[in-house]
């Protein structure tokens, strides 16, 4: 068992420069601060990362088809508001959460329709969707936060963001649940294989009997659904939905995907990489916070790390 297993681990490390980057980042951070590598802080980083990771894993599907989704932050805000108002009206989470995720999937599918049948570039479609949905979130909330209120439903709903199970925050479970689901779909189903094929070459995919439009619509729906789940977690954690929540999240998600080694040209990438990419960003934010670096410098540092990660990746790919 051990020989192939070791081989597998080595390959994983070589294939995933992001993983090495993460290890390096953790080592440096641990060296610079005693408060970094504690159990509490580790769980803290994972919890903070969970929202970006959940969004980014959805966006990975879109990017694998050589598309892009800029609307996820706005989807998060609008669906988060849906979730809050459903909860405020006393609807139990086992109804409101699937409802919210379905709404996110539907919003994503609309973008997908325009990309697939409208033959409009994904960048433009999702930029428009971002603008419209952000506006819709403001209209829906009337520009004010929507509190989830205080009811039995609200208490249960809150657990999704603030609760613990065996000492581990619930959002971390959700993040790993989404990871396992996405990984299974991408690597063990026909649909996943087709996602890679569409991104690898649309004409090849079409001639291989793949319904390219259906795949395209589906990946935007998945991206929307993941953004909505992230909206649930954020709303639950804050106890209210903010109309401006998730501003700029689309860029963090894309950064996580790219750091994770997924090609923006489509057809190549792994969901595991995205998870690691999200952790790189999460660890970086956390470490800089602990070290007391001002948030202005944090942005510069974050940009530099993303650039570095992508440079290393593109160099290693052109040399192979």
């Amino acid at each position: 068992m051990s020989a192939p297993a070791t081989h597998h681990v080595t390959r994983l490390l070589i294939d995933n420069k992001a993983f090495l980057a993460l290890a390096l980042l953790v080592a440096v951070s641990a060296g610079m601060s005693d408060n970094f590598l504690t159990l509490d802080n580790t769980l803290n980083v994972l919890r903070q990362t969970s929202i970006n990771a959940i969004i980014a894993m959805g966006v990975t599907f879109v990017i694998l088809t050589a598309g892009i989704d800029l609307s996820v932050g706005a989807v998060l805000a609008l669906t988060g508001a849906f979730a809050a108002s459903m909860t405020a009206s006393g609807l139990a989470p086992w109804l409101s959460v699937p409802g919210t995720v379905a709404a996110g999937a539907a919003l994503g599918a609309i973008s997908g329709l325009f990309v697939a049948y409208g033959r409009v570039q994904a960048f433009i479609v999702t930029l428009v969707a971002m603008t419209i949905l952000r506006g819709a979130a403001l209209v829906f909330t009337d520009g004010r936060p929507i509190a989830i209120g205080a009811s039995e439903a609200a208490d249960t709903f809150w657990l999704l963001g603030g609760g613990y199970w065996f000492g581990v925050p619930i959002p971390i479970y959700l993040m790993f649940f989404v990871f396992v689901l996405c990984w299974s779909v991408l690597h063990h189903t026909r649909f996943g294989r087709h996602v890679y094929a569409v991104g690898g070459g649309e004409k090849v995919a079409r001639l291989s009997g793949i319904n390219v439009n259906r795949i395209k619509i589906s990946v935007y729906a998945i991206s929307g659904a993941c953004a909505a789940l992230a909206g649930v977690v954020l709303t639950a954690r804050l106890g209210s939905a903010q109309p401006t929540a998730g501003t700029g999240y689309e860029l963090d998600a894309i950064a996580a995907v790219v750091i994770g080694g997924t090609s923006l040209m489509g057809g190549r990438g792994r969901i595991f990489g995205t998870l690691i990419g999200a952790l790189v960003i999460g660890v970086l934010n956390n470490a800089l916070n602990i070290m007391g670096v001002s948030s202005y410098y944090q942005m510069i540092a974050k940009g530099a790390v993303i650039l570095l990660a992508v440079l290393i990746d593109s160099r290693s790919q052109s040399s192979s």
Binding site: A197, G200, G201, K203, V204, A205, L207, G267
Partner: peptide, 19 residues
């Protein structure tokens, strides 16, 4: 352009149509 996904594994190419 139309026949094979050249940067994908050989096996995945072979089984793509018959998947």
């Amino acid at each position: 352009q139309a026949g094979l996904l050249l940067d994908h594994p050989v096996g995945e190419n072979m089984s793509l149509t018959a998947l």
